Amino acid sequence: MPTLGIIGTGNIGAAIARLAVSAGIPVVLSNSRGPETLASLVSELGPLASAGTIEQSAAAGDIVVLSVPLTAHTAIPASLLEGKAVLDTTNYYPFRDGRVAELDEERVTTSELVLRHFQGAGLTKAFNNILAHHIPQLARPSGAPDRTALPVAGDDASAKTKVMSLIEQLGFDAVDAGPLAESWRFEPEARAYTKLYLADPATPDDRMLEAPAAPVPAERLRDALKRAEPVRVAARTF
């Protein structure tokens, strides 16, 4: 069974790790603080999980999940992910990351900016448009009538195929959302961002982190992607 390397074990990275081991996929976890800080999560995940350095996680992964804050990605040597299929969950949050002129001016998408650093990687964008607590709520076995779809954007066809297959194994249908240049369609505040997966779309922002999810089939996701309108990134405050 191919191994999943996970760099960054916050809410999204940990949620992906839990789905992976449930699907029988070995994971090698890493973060910026060192493998000893991951003992509790490794114990929870069981024998398919281990912790290592970022270098070890990158080397072990047939696919590598990159789930770190935007400003942290440049601290990771680009050579570690060269030739790797990378699943990038990065979002740009000005309140956390500060202002980034290229993103505010909409010259590039967030993952295009990340790829500029990891030029040798097959980078795809996914799992950035769903709240972490909705991931286990919405994962379903293959063929389930209420299976939820997630978008996947990327420029490297081979890497995108690998990541879409992984997403299917993790319990979601994968929808090809085009190249990275089109990934704005499911970035913050866009139509295919997190509110799409809320059971009640009218949920106030301050209650979203506790709000239940509802399945989003592939056709509904495709419609949201198609109907998405560009977000004025410079006007965003979160």
Rank of each mutant, 00 (worst) to 15 (best):
A174P: 00
L70N: 07
R107I: 11
K160S: 09
I25Y: 04
L209E: 13
L80E: 15
D176V: 04
S50W: 14
V21R: 04
I6W: 03
A190L: 05
A49H: 02
D97E: 09
I54H: 11
L150N: 09
A190E: 05
G8S: 02
A20W: 05
P136K: 02
H134C: 07
A121Q: 05
L19S: 13
T237M: 06
P141G: 10
N129M: 10
D223V: 15
I12M: 04
L80V: 11
K125L: 01
E102N: 07
A78N: 14
K195E: 15
P201D: 10
P26Q: 05
T74Y: 10
E105A: 09
G61Y: 04
I76C: 07
V108Q: 04
S43C: 12
V233H: 09
R18S: 13
G178M: 01
V175Q: 00
L138S: 08
L170P: 01
P230R: 15
E36L: 12
E182N: 02
A192Y: 00
V100D: 00
R191P: 06
V68P: 03
N129E: 07
P26W: 13
A101I: 13
A58Q: 11
D62I: 02
L48I: 01
E44T: 03
E189W: 06
A23V: 07
A224T: 11
E82A: 15
P212W: 05
A149T: 06
P35E: 09
L80Q: 13
V28N: 09
E44P: 00
L48C: 01
G34V: 05
R236W: 07
I7Y: 09
D156S: 15
L170N: 00
L41F: 06
A59H: 09
I167E: 01
D88L: 02
K125I: 03
A60G: 11
G5P: 00
V108C: 03
R207F: 14
A49W: 03
K125H: 04
H117R: 07
V65G: 00
R207M: 15
R147G: 11
M1H: 12
Y92W: 08
L29T: 01
E229A: 14
R107F: 11
R191S: 12
K226D: 14
R232D: 15
D176P: 00
P201N: 12
A177K: 00
K84G: 12
A49F: 06
H73Y: 09
P94H: 04
A157F: 06
A132V: 06
F238H: 11
I130N: 01
R232M: 14
R18I: 09
S43G: 06
E168R: 09
L123I: 01
V68I: 08
E55A: 10
S67D: 04
S30V: 01
V100P: 02
K160V: 11
I16Y: 03
T203H: 15
P179A: 04
G98N: 06
L87I: 08
T109R: 08
I54T: 14
T9R: 02
Q119H: 02
Y197P: 05
S165L: 09
L196P: 05
L4K: 07
